[in-house]
Nucleic acid binder design. Structure first.
Lengths: 227, 227
DNA sequence: GATGATTTGTACGTATGTATA
DNA sequence: ATATACATACGTACAAATCAT
């Protein structure tokens, strides 16, 4: 008899499920999706009660989230969803631009033919979504586009660090930010990146990605000013 | 009456000392210094007994170290000092070269005059240590040199990520690796970096740093082969 | 500024999962 | 393959620190 809670695909490695792990993933998701807004207090007992567990796994999950930067913990003073000052926000955008630029540069020279084809395919699907005017799905597939570049660097550490930086910025993005004009421009910038990567032009890929993230921050900043 | 355990300098913020924090710093130090070698088992009870505390703060410290990559934890199977495969080791070196290159590039255009002077001063002290033939102190001040560049980027996130990468590689460096020939070459490469930073030449600084870390890995690889 | 309420930090016992015979 | 030994994962109680009054 098989484990009824096991994964559908038996090929996926089955790490023994721990409450801490479940909580970490669940809380990270709620923070990234915005259900738990920046600054919101994360009371250990309240969370424990909400998930029907003791404080211990809640504590461990919060510590791990703090290590990733999504949560802020001060001794004896509890945990809150991480809040970013304007300066820190800018700093993270600059860091993300540089990190993604490095990934794109390495990807240009390291990606396998299959990976290049896959990236091109995602890029074409994004074009269709611009034409269809579907910001929601564009946003989702856009994540895949960037993740494909991270993985294309063939450097797990850089990919991890870059993704972590992106995740930290997620809670500060809002749906309203995804306008159709932005989508079209985003797609055109992606085009520069993809072309450079496909012709294995490291420096061009790096520069195109840096510029791309730069305009993302600009658009983001314009939205922030509207608050 | 003042806290007898307080810091000498009252201006330094005094984070309430917690056993978890102490343990984390102590264990990280022992791992980085090599007292706890990669692959060594980190038994919660043994460590708790050694430090005279309960298992709880030990657990939390180990989790945090795992988050930083210095420790590896598998559910229900305990923790060990992180071991790196040859491939992973190379990957971390490539990542470090890229990260430090980014920091150097940003530092070239962001450092204040004071920071530039301080970097130059460290550089000159390193020159003296090469002449004096003091690998131990060169190694220590070399850390300061690189840290100064990280901080010079004026980007806390990048500095943090880059430093974390360097720390993860520390346990795999050995004293024997620091030969006099290496020192001299290291100093000359630093010279290229410093010159580029001082004349605010971003690309040159970036390239010089990337090359520098590249030779560090080469020298490191030669040592590894001797094992 | 002292006191009480509240929350976190730590200790320790039990349950559960992993590895070995 | 089953059982046994062992270390970890979790729960619970208490101590210590913070903040509110």
């Amino acid at each position: 008899m098989t484990d009824p809670d096991g994964p559908a695909d038996p090929l996926l490695e089955r790490r023994s499920r721990t409450r801490t792990e479940d909580l970490r993933l669940q809380l990270a998701d709620e923070i990234v999706r915005g259900d738990l807004a920046p600054g919101m207090a994360l009371d250990e007992m309240r969370i424990a009660a909400r998930f029907g567990v003791s404080r211990t796994p809640v504590r461990e999950a919060l510590r791990q989230l703090a290590a990733s930067g999504l949560v802020e913990i001060r001794p004896h003073r509890g945990a809150v969803v991480a809040r970013l000052s304007t300066e820190k926000l800018h700093e993270l955008f600059v860091a993300m631009a540089e990190l993604e630029a490095v990934c794109a540069g390495l990807a240009a020279v390291a990606m396998t033919p299959n990976e290049r084809r896959a990236l091109e395919e995602i890029h074409e699907l994004l074009r269709d979504l611009v034409r269809a005017g579907d910001p929601q799905r564009y946003h989702e597939l856009n994540e895949s586009f960037h993740t494909a570049v991270y993985l294309g660097s063939h450097n797990g550490h850089l990919a991890e660090v870059t993704l972590a930086t992106r995740v930290r910025l997620q809670p500060f993005r809002r749906a309203q930010f995804r306008t159709l004009g932005r989508l079209s421009r985003s797609y055109m910038e992606h085009d520069d990146i993809v072309r450079a990567i496909l012709r294995a032009d490291r420096d061009a890929a790096s520069l195109a990605m840096r510029d791309h993230i730069g305009t993302v921050e600009t658009a983001f900043g314009e939205y922030i000013d509207m608050l």
